[in-house]
Design a protein around this nucleic acid. Structure first.
Lengths: 126, 126
DNA sequence: TGGATAATTCGACATGTTTCGAAATATAGA
DNA sequence: TCTATATTTCGAAACATGTCGAATTATCCA
């Protein structure tokens, strides 16, 4: 985290904005599930627009709108396959996001313990 | 990514929403910079509201509003210290976000190469 | 070619967000 | 207590977002 280039903030915020809607996030998680080394987002694993809408209770036009947002953010890709349109997560975008938070991983629990101990003695604002 | 509990989507989306505004993201990055094992968010490292506004060109009331959003999302903590209010990033929230994207890290480049090769031959939608 | 299915675009509406300035509150220090 | 400084709350204005249904476009298959 300490060396992350701060001028990327605008671009990064756009990624977060795309994931800030619960419906869009669910769509993205659904796509990202099959997008990993080994399964490798093979065409057979990709979801089409209609499938992504199932269980979300949204109109097709709304799903389409959300997919467009995810695509413009560079989080997913789409390609026509006959009557359907295949969707899959962009592994590079996933990697970028992973990298951003990487610095906070690992020993963060140590830090959390410190902060908690501090708050107990000092009293935290509500 | 494959085993991430999808019912957390609402909660997770709220975290992303808090980071989806460039100004808020910059504030958060500024705070997260000092929030890591070793430096450990010591009180002397924490920023106050006024400092966070410097360089952002926003009215104090706007900074205050953004900090409230970050606090409600659980991304930062605030505590009054005399005339000032100290702010620091929540290391647990950082860890949660890190964990979410962890599954995409590592061999994602392999996957990216696969996707690119596929798009070149099949033609991707614009 | 014509009908069926899948997806997108468009227009509209309700709701939410970002921002400010003014007023209110909190704290330190003379 | 009074004043200066820091921060928050409030109200308002401009703008963006999420959603739908209707109309349009794309593709397959008979």
């Amino acid at each position: 985290m300490s060396n992350y280039p701060i001028n990327d903030a605008e671009e990064l915020a756009a990624l977060f904005k795309a994931l800030s809607n619960p419906h869009r996030l669910k769509i993205f998680i659904g796509l990202a599930r099959c997008c990993r080394p080994g399964q490798a987002c093979a065409p057979s694993m990709r979801a089409c627009v209609g499938e992504l809408g199932d269980g979300l209770g949204l109109a097709p036009s709304t799903i389409s709108h959300h997919l467009k947002e995810l695509r413009h953010a560079g989080l997913i890709h789409m390609k026509r396959a006959g009557q359907h349109v295949e969707c899959w997560a962009d592994p590079e975008a996933l990697a970028r996001l992973s990298e951003f938070f990487h610095f906070a991983g690992g020993d963060a629990s140590e830090l959390a313990a410190f902060a908690e101990a501090h708050d107990k003695t000092m009293g935290e604002q509500r």
